[in-house]
Amino acid sequence: MFDNLSDKLNSVFKKLKGHGKLSEKNIDEGLREVRMALLEADAHYRVVKQLIADIRARAIGQEVLESLTPAQQVIKIVNEELTALMGSEKEALNLSGAMPQAVMLVGLQGSGKTTTAGKLAVHLRKNGKKPYLVPLDVYRPAAIDQLKKLGEQLSVPVFDSSPEMDPVEIAQKARQKAPSEGCDTLVLDTAGRLHVDSELMNELSRIQKAIEPSDVLLIADAMTGQDAVNMAESFDQALDLGGIVLTKMDGDARGGAALSIKAVTGKPVKFIGVGEKTNALEEFHPDRMASRILGMGDMLSFIEKA
């Protein structure tokens, strides 16, 4: 399929010998392959349409560089556009404002919020912070236990919530209690919810209003398909997200959802989750993500040097 996107492009551009200009016709043939690759990677249909139009506009009339084949030249442009869309600046957690600060984690069911809460506690501690894990999921069976166990494993204090409590109330009480626990940063683990569930989306807004977290992270599964745009747009509209964490990147998903989410929210991907263990959290690298989406890691590092 498109492990061989470069092979396909090579065959498309075979006819174009020497170092002529990229013409409309040969570009369109090549871009058809690029488009397929992006759609197979789960990038959203509309996002791909716009991207291809942008790439086309940039590529037409370009001189082919001495050091590259025309296929490589097109891939170089595609890669640059993808990387630019994904955000070239590194963005850290936002931890501004009054103490204790709070980071709120939101997302669909099973996306990895609770696990990521544990991972963030480790990350915060490494950065000299004193995290306080706060379970706000009063719905899913044993969700509170799950976070408590993670806290225990990590020796990070966990607020003692119970399923009878209201999530807003839990968050407020945890904030009051944080200083006496020696904590300066709350990590709020909310229940998974569908973006179309207005009652539960409303609950998130209430938590946000009550606590005014300095960062709100959408925890999104890297395997998400076309629905990523609907989901991300709704969460961003409700909460004005501060950033994204892409989880389950340790699998073989191409992760085109990253493109979709970035395109509709404009918010930076701040971390990626690369495993189930609490140390499996990494910084996000837009260029690596671009190669992954295109399915051509090594090829790209060669082209980037050209």
Binding site: D42, L108, D221, M223, D252, A253, R254
Partner: peptide
Amino acid sequence: LDATTGQNALA
């Protein structure tokens, strides 16, 4: 399988 999953569900 999760209905929100895209092409990875095939793999």
